[in-house]
Every structure is written in structure tokens, then in C-alpha cells.
């Protein structure tokens, strides 16, 4: 078969060559842009009216300036790191030239946390917590969904734990974590506290949605499974799981959203070196730039949350058998 005549390809070509497609794209991007413009205008107007103890509330221009400031700081830090390793290499080379059997000591560079390294920490923390929560919630949700008795047992507990604020969990988690002796493989204490809090809060939507998805497999398909006499494992793999995948992903997306929100609060209080700590430190710092920096952080938090959700959506599109089901 001529690959150029493949139906999917020609459909794709049609889509991109038609003026209708481009007109639609143009309209969409114009609408998105106008929304952003309205927001920036409102921000500008509102900020000029607000006086705080740290001076005037920053507008978009000040935030943008602070953004480039943060980028500069990051680059400067990178340069210092590069210079440090260069110096170390030179030192080693000199030592080897003097005595080829010399014992070399390599020191790691102790980087000061920059805005961008803090973003990375936050992402690591949230993903660790989210993955752990999912690893618990999906299997447990499947078990609960398969048995109406188990559902009756667990449902009150889920309803009880679901609305608990991360701030309520945090002291308990902190106390428990500090009472347990952690090996260095686990990372720092503040990291573990943040991960555990994120996990405890993001467990519930996935758990509940998985259970509901599993319990709502159509009776017809259950009958098919019975007539075919599928074993428990094949029944689960062939009938139940594919049927529940849309609901599981709904749960996962809700959970990831919650995980990201919880993370910022947890980092503020646990002093995990991520975005939450950045905001808190700037707030405590109270310099004239602090408010602008917090504004930048708030926007970045929003953007990253949005990006995480899009990632989840892409994963869902890949995994889900029903390509028409997932749109937004």
C-alpha cells in the first residue's frame, strides 16, 4: 500500500491544508490571547491602587523584571558552579603533574538553591508523592470496587479522610517522620514530610474513582465474562480494567491537581526547598522585591499545575481505548 494514500495521513493532510482549520486555530489563539490581555490589564490597574507595607503592589512590569532577575541569578549560580569544577580540575591536574600517585579528593559543589532548582525540587516531591499515592490507590480501589462488601467497609473511611486539609496532617506526619530514623537514601526529612503529606491528600480521588469505575462495569460485559468463564485474573485484565480506565484517569487527574496544591502548603511548613519554601522565604524576607518575586512564583505554580494536568491528559489519551472520550 502506498504510504501517502494511508487514510490517517490524508486526513491529517486535509486537516492542515484546509483554510477552515487555520481559521479555527487563529480564532482560538486570538481568544486565548484576549483573555490573557484582559488579565494583565486588570492586574496593572488593580496593582496601582494597592499600597502595602512593602510598598506598592507589583504590576506585570515589575514581575517581569523580577523574572529576568531570577534567570540572571540562576545563570550566575551556574557559572560559579562551572568555575568551581574548573578550579578543581586544574588543582587535580597540577597535583598529578607533581606526583602521579597523588590521592585526589573531589568535592561536590554546594549550590545555593535558585528559583529553578526549587522548581525541580517541587516537581520531584509532587511526583514522588503522587506516584506513591497512585500505587496504593489504584490496586486498593480495584479491590474495593470488585466487592460491594469491601466498598461498604471502606466508603465511610474514605469519606472521613478525603476532606482533611494538608495543614491538619502536617504536624502528625512531621512528628512521626522525626521519630523514625531515616537512612540517607530517603532524602532529607523535609522531603519525606512533604511527600507523605502530598500522598495522604492525593490518595482519595484516585481511590474513589477507581472503586466506582470498577464497580460500574456494564452487566452485559460481566455476563460475557461469565459465559466465557474467564479466570479471576483474566476477568480483571480483559474486562474490568479497560472498562474502568476512564474513571481511573479522572481520579488520577483530580489527585495530581490536589497533590500540586497541597505540595505548596506542605513545603511552606515543612521547609522543603521547593516553590512553597521560596514563597515563604520571600514573605519573611520582606524586601522591596519580595512581592514581585512572590507574584512570579504564583504564576509559575499555576503554569506548572496546568502543564502537569496536560501531561496527564496526554497519558490518558495514550492509554484510553476510547479516543473520543477525552477532550478537555
Amino acid at each position: 500500500m502506498n504510504i501517502l494514500k494511508h487514510p490517517a495521513l490524508s486526513q491529517w493532510q486535509n486537516q492542515f491544508s484546509s483554510t477552515l482549520f487555520w481559521r479555527k486555530q487563529l480564532k482560538q489563539s486570538l481568544l486565548t490571547l484576549s483573555g490573557l490581555l484582559v488579565f494583565v490589564l486588570c492586574w496593572q490597574l488593580a496593582s496601582s491602587q494597592i499600597q502595602t507595607s512593602l510598598g506598592q503592589f507589583p504590576g506585570p512590569a515589575q514581575a517581569a523584571a523580577q523574572w529576568s532577575q531570577l534567570v540572571d541569578e540562576y545563570q550566575a549560580e551556574k557559572q560559579r558552579e562551572g568555575a568551581f569544577y574548573l578550579r578543581q580540575q586544574e588543582r587535580h591536574a597540577a597535583a598529578l603533574a607533581e606526583d602521579p600517585t597523588a590521592e585526589l579528593t573531589s568535592l561536590p559543589y554546594r549550590a545555593r538553591p535558585t528559583f529553578f532548582s526549587q522548581i525541580l525540587t517541587s516537581l520531584q516531591t509532587v511526583l514522588t508523592g503522587f506516584v506513591l499515592a497512585s500505587l496504593i490507590a489504584i490496586p486498593l480501589g480495584i479491590l474495593i470496587g470488585l466487592s460491594s462488601n469491601l466498598y461498604q467497609v471502606f466508603n465511610p473511611l474514605i469519606q472521613l479522610f478525603k476532606p482533611i486539609s494538608p495543614l491538619a496532617w502536617l504536624p502528625l506526619v512531621t512528628l512521626i517522620v522525626s521519630s523514625v530514623d531515616l537512612s540517607s537514601a530517603w532524602g532529607s526529612r523535609s522531603f519525606v514530610v512533604s511527600v507523605c503529606t502530598v500522598m495522604l491528600c492525593s490518595l482519595w480521588p484516585t481511590l474513589l474513582n477507581t472503586a466506582v469505575g470498577v464497580s460500574q462495569v456494564p452487566q452485559d460485559l460481566l455476563n460475557v465474562s461469565k459465559v466465557l468463564r474467564l479466570s479471576w485474573w483474566r476477568h480483571l485484565r480483559i474486562i474490568v480494567l479497560p472498562s474502568a480506565v476512564p474513571m481511573i484517569f479522572t481520579g488520577l487527574r483530580l489527585s495530581l491537581g490536589i497533590a500540586w496544591m497541597v505540595l505548596i502548603a506542605a513545603e511552606m511548613l515543612a521547609q522543603n526547598p521547593g516553590l512553597g519554601k521560596f514563597v515563604w522565604d520571600e514573605f519573611q524576607n520582606g524586601s522591596s522585591d519580595s512581592l514581585s518575586r512572590i507574584c512570579v512564583a504564583v504564576l509559575v505554580i499555576g503554569l506548572l499545575g496546568f502543564a502537569l494536568d496536560r501531561l496527564m491528559l496526554m497519558l490518558q489519551r495514550k492509554v484510553n481505548w476510547d479516543k473520543t472520550a477525552v477532550s478537555r
Partner: peptide, 19 residues
């Protein structure tokens, strides 16, 4: 006493697995 492949069923609404 239980379902089995020697009594195959054609269901009213086809009941194919959509995936």
C-alpha cells in the same frame, strides 16, 4: 448449574468489548 462455553449466548446489544 453455571455458565459455560457449550451454551454460547448472543446478547441483545451485541456486548462486544469496545476496547
Amino acid at each position: 448449574t453455571e455458565p459455560g462455553p457449550e451454551r454460547a449466548v448472543v446478547f441483545q446489544n451485541h456486548s462486544l468489548l469496545p476496547w
